[in-house]
């Protein structure tokens, strides 16, 4: 811990001395981009301690594995002539794995923002050329991109399986593109909600519990209601409208109506008006989350 030796009055000078910096200084946009990549790495625990890798990587494996299995099954059964389409529609995959996706968001959304709030690191960011809007945008984009990667890789894996099984390429490609669009929507909606909840508390543990509770409870409640009303009452229309009330069923509804996917919920949006409403609400949730995040970070005392 001794300071750099000063230049000796005689003899060899080892002290490098202080070197100024004359090189380029990047502007806001590039800095925001650097924060984006840094946060994206953090979403998967890359570049951090081994412990912070366990959860995201473990969940990534849990979410990817079934897709791998499905891809293999596709190839095997198609080669025996037993199949002419994939066993599981690409677009249905996020919904099938939704508990795991919810846990991923529950752990990684707080990782992205609660730490900065808890350790009070925000003043260090904001005393730099970065503005609050850059911070929020970078974090939101990073988490959404992370979730998209989480969903896209399994979907693409199943697609490759379908191609290897020599299923009709045009049809499969069309399906996979639509599924990826759906995955993008899921990412935006879930990341927005998760980030907003996480930013409300500096206590990471509570943020995790709150996010998972909201995502899982809402799905559970909506499914339960749809079950009773849709099947018990045979009122699929109302059951369909109920899908607006949970993020997962909301995006599933948009997928079903706008992208022609099979519904994974008990009931999809009944009719075109409902479909439009679903799309509108989805857009509102995304934009609304972003705006609320901006407001939250404007209010945070630095």
């Amino acid at each position: 811990m001794s300071p750099q030796p000063e230049a000796a009055p005689s003899g060899v000078i080892h002290d490098i001395g202080y070197r100024g910096y004359d090189g380029p200084r990047l502007g806001r946009n590039l800095v925001a981009r650097a924060l984006f990549f840094h946060s994206l790495r953090g979403v998967f625990g890359i570049g951090r301690s081994a412990r912070s890798k366990v959860m995201p990587m473990g969940l990534f494996a849990v979410i990817w594995l079934p897709a791998l299995v499905i891809a293999v099954i596709t190839v095997v059964t198609a080669s025996q002539g037993l199949l002419n389409d994939v066993p599981v529609q690409f677009a249905r995959y996020p919904m099938l794995l939704q508990p795991a996706v919810a846990i991923f968001l529950g752990t990684q959304a707080p990782q992205a923002v609660s730490l900065d709030l808890r350790y009070n690191t925000l003043p260090l960011y904001l005393s730099r050329p970065l503005e609050r809007v850059d911070y929020v945008t970078a974090k939101y984009a990073a988490l959404a991109t992370g979730v998209f990667i989480l969903l896209a890789i399994p979907i693409l894996t199943m697609y490759i399986g379908a191609l290897l099984a020599e299923l009709p390429a045009g049809e499969q490609t069309g399906d996979v593109v639509l599924a990826l669009i759906g995955a993008a929507l899921f990412s935006l909606v879930l990341a927005g909600i998760g980030l907003l909840i996480a930013s409300l508390t500096a206590r990471r543990g509570f943020g995790v519990a709150a996010i998972i509770t909201v995502l899982v409870m809402s799905y559970s409640v909506v499914s339960g209601l749809q079950g009773i009303i849709g099947h018990g009452q045979s009122d699929l229309a109302t059951a369909g409208w109920l899908g607006l009330l949970s993020p997962m069923t909301l995006v599933d509804g948009v997928q079903t109506w706008a992208l022609g996917a099979e519904s994974s919920a008990v009931a999809g949006p009944p009719g075109d008006l409902a479909g439009l409403v679903f799309c509108l609400v989805t857009a509102t949730v995304v934009v609304g989350s972003y705006l609320c995040l901006m407001y939250r970070y404007r209010k945070v005392t630095v």
């Binding site: 559970s220 499914s223 079950g227 009773i228 018990g232 009452q233």
Partner: peptide, 22 residues
């Protein structure tokens, strides 16, 4: 109020929402 519930429905609902999740 709005649905005709059998005990089975109630049980399914409570199982799924309360016991499994809540």
């Amino acid at each position: 109020l709005f649905a005709d519930l059998s005990p089975d429905d109630t049980a399914q609902f409570l199982h799924g929402v309360s016991l499994s999740t809540l």
